[in-house]
Design a protein around this nucleic acid. Structure first.
Lengths: 207, 207
DNA sequence: TAATTTAATGTAAGTGATTACTTACATTAA
DNA sequence: TTAATGTAAGTAATCACTTACATTAAATTA
């Protein structure tokens, strides 16, 4: 192959794949929150970061893998922290408070994450993704159950309502928060949302 | 224009637009539940009914209008019935029971409806659709609040927890149900789901 | 009633836009 | 020198929707 003229291009500064993967995941959440899921194309994604579209596929083999990586982050970051709260040495009421408020804070700090997860889960029938989501969901239920059972065990809370019922109801709280976020898109003013819900949870658990 | 040969085709039996619109809406829900949202293309939709793709657009100008029509059905059918339950002459506890159990039954009978609504709302930034969804959501909150306030007024229930808090928590219940449906896809066995949740609601409201 | 017209409903075969992803090659850090 | 990361310019597939025309039920007219 002969070159008569060597083209000189201005290239995007190179970054290793770990850095780019983080940028890509963050851009996904940004786009979902500010432009909606329908604008979550690989083209728009690349534009947000300032890369070419092809570069995206250097760091994730398939678009779906980005979603999966985000769910893995949730498993590690959110569920990991919730687990350490659930098994800490505070009394059950403090743990429940921290548990709920940390969840609310995480969802507010990572807007769009729940919508991404469930939209992708219902859109693609990806088994791996669906199982990961189930795990995120069930982990929270189990951890809440553990806190409640501790409170019952020390004689502080009422044990007459089956703990699975309470866990099912509990899971509605973060879901409800997310729907509010989607429907009100920013106009959502509820800084004391977690305290509000806690008041009710404690009433449920009261002897 | 000259015809040397008049072509004779076997045509789909003609139906008026009201019938076709119902078939199309039902096919949308079937597809979402059985094949997932990603298979909700106009092509697949037409195939399910046995029509050509073009015929779909005889009955709905845009695909988005199908979703909107389904949300209108929910407003009329579900919210309409919930309203009549909320304002009936039964005592508050019976009304709350009927209200919740009717909602659960509607969602189980129309699987896919919530996923469609919220996925479309977060995907397209359609203002009309989003406002309709907000109305569906807020109507339920208001009706639940009305029942609770009645129970408090007759001195049966505890009025110390603000009724908006309870309404927010209540809305988590149908949302939680839907996530279970999506994640467990058929393996969901919870015929007494509404009774379970009712037990907790009554505990919250107990004096 | 019988013939004719019309409007609604149907079809096949397109349209351009967009999609996720690939390919061939350029650059550069190690 | 090599492997990782970048680019531009593709690819085939799919999307919602359109167009031109066929069929037919029902309304209108003879």
């Amino acid at each position: 192959m002969l070159y008569f003229c060597k083209q000189v291009l201005t290239y995007m500064e190179k970054q290793n794949t770990e850095v780019r993967q983080e940028q890509i995941k963050q851009a996904v959440l940004d786009i979902i929150y500010t432009e909606g899921l329908k604008n979550l194309s690989t083209r728009n994604l690349a534009k947000h970061i300032g890369l070419s579209e092809g570069a995206i596929f250097r760091h994730f083999a398939k678009k779906q893998d980005i979603t999966l990586a985000i769910v893995r982050d949730v498993q590690k970051d959110l569920i990991g922290e919730l687990r350490s709260i659930a098994f800490s040495n505070f009394d059950p009421e403090d743990r429940l408070n921290q548990f709920l408020c940390h969840t609310v804070k995480y969802l507010l700090d990572n807007k769009g994450i729940t919508m991404l997860m469930f939209s992708e889960a219902s859109r693609n029938n990806d088994v791996v993704l669906k199982e990961s989501l189930q795990q995120v969901f069930n982990s929270q239920k189990q951890l809440v159950s553990a806190i409640v059972l501790d409170g019952v065990a020390i004689g502080k809370w009422d044990g007459s309502i089956p703990v699975e019922y309470i866990a099912d109801l509990y899971m509605g709280i973060p879901l409800s928060l997310n729907i509010e976020l989607v429907l009100n898109q920013g106009k959502f003013q509820m800084d004391n949302f977690c305290q509000r819900m806690l008041v009710i949870l404690l009433k449920i658990l009261k002897k």
